[in-house]
């Protein structure tokens, strides 16, 4: 089966003032046609760089990226025709022109006949509640309106693959629900949707599969269900006795691999199996650390995601 997106051994290195920085490190992934695929990661994870490479806007340092079978470096023109991109940047339209005129301009570059284009713009503006604001200069738009306009532009030429960078940010609840429905509709009609986000709940709600990314590396890829299972860790809160509360840092160093949170007289550890708990209890005993209580509970997904992606060093 041909993939919508194939990424093989992709790396991106930036060199600044003599320093080398890996924005992406040996990325491998395949996105199926008709799939909603989210790239989930904290700020600076490399999500936008990956999307920009897929969109042909940034050249990779090494590796191969194919969109519907077309190599992004050799067939950039063909790739551009089949993708619709909406980035999270505020700057991407002409400030002095209205939303409608901006869309008319960008739409015309795709060779859409004028009448069809005008009707499509009107329908989309209405769908995203911008039918009145469409005639107001872009510079007067709120962040949410700018985001909506950017999404509309990506939809204008009816591409096969949509690339949305943080599509839900700055949007009100009503629009978020509408956009989710739109994504489902696009998927139903066979379109592929790639979303970069740092919002795990949003990713979970709309995606068929999610790639968790941090520091330019893909940590895990799986369905939301698989990831949840994978992230199924227990949080153990150890309440230290008063005499040890000043030694939190030393103790935290010893439990470095499990540290989840530290506060007042409490150290929280994230454990993925029961065996680890007995190991920790033994260690506490060995160190002579006294505690007055231990509680075990589940964590929310977002914190677990942070735990997985944060730099322990």
């Amino acid at each position: 089966m041909a993939y919508a997106v194939e990424v093989e051994n992709l790396s991106k290195i930036y060199k600044k003032e003599g320093d080398t920085f890996f924005a992406l490190k040996n990325i491998n992934l395949c996105i199926n046609k008709g799939e909603v695929f989210s790239i989930l990661g904290p700020n600076g994870a490399g999500k936008t760089t990956l999307l920009k490479i897929i969109s042909t806007l940034v050249l990779p340092s090494s590796g191969v990226v194919k969109i519907n079978g077309y190599d992004i470096c050799r067939n950039e023109s063909k790739v551009r025709r089949i993708i619709g991109v909406s980035t999270g940047f505020e700057r991407s339209f002409y400030y002095r022109l209205s939303g409608y005129r901006n869309l008319l301009f960008f739409g015309s570059l795709y060779g859409i006949p004028r009448n069809i284009l005008k009707n499509r713009i009107k329908l989309l503006l209405k769908e995203f509640d911008l039918d009145q604001a469409g005639y107001v200069p872009y510079m007067k738009y709120s962040m949410g309106m700018k985001k909506k306009l950017s999404i509309i532009r990506a939809l204008l030429h009816d591409p096969d693959i949509f690339i949305f960078d943080e599509p839900m940010s700055s949007l009100d609840v009503k629009t978020v629900i509408k956009l989710r429905e739109k994504i489902h509709l696009l998927k139903k009609s066979g379109k592929t949707i790639i979303i970069a986000t740092h919002n795990i709940e949003e990713a979970e709600k709309v995606s068929d599969r999610i790639a968790v990314m941090n520091k330019g590396v893909i940590k895990k890829i799986g369905t939301p269900h698989e990831l949840k299972k994978l992230l199924n860790v227990k949080i153990v809160d150890i309440f230290l006795s008063e005499s040890f509360s000043n030694e939190k840092k030393r103790i935290a160093k010893i439990f470095h691999d499990w540290i989840y949170d530290i506060s007042d007289n409490k150290i929280s550890l994230a454990l993925s199996n029961e065996g680890e708990l007995s190991k920790i209890l033994k260690l506490l005993e060995l160190l002579g650390v006294s505690y007055f209580d231990i509680t075990i509970h589940d964590s929310d997904l977002e914190k677990i995601f942070i735990f997985l992606t944060e730099d322990k060093n």
């Binding site: 042909t56 806007l57 023109s77 980035t87 505020e90 700057r91 002409y94 960008f106 570059l109």
Partner: peptide, 15 residues
């Protein structure tokens, strides 16, 4: 570059 539109012009498959 200042208006941030260059990337979108390129994405429209305009050389």
């Amino acid at each position: 570059q200042i208006s941030g539109t260059l990337e979108y012009l390129l994405l429209s498959d305009t050389p």
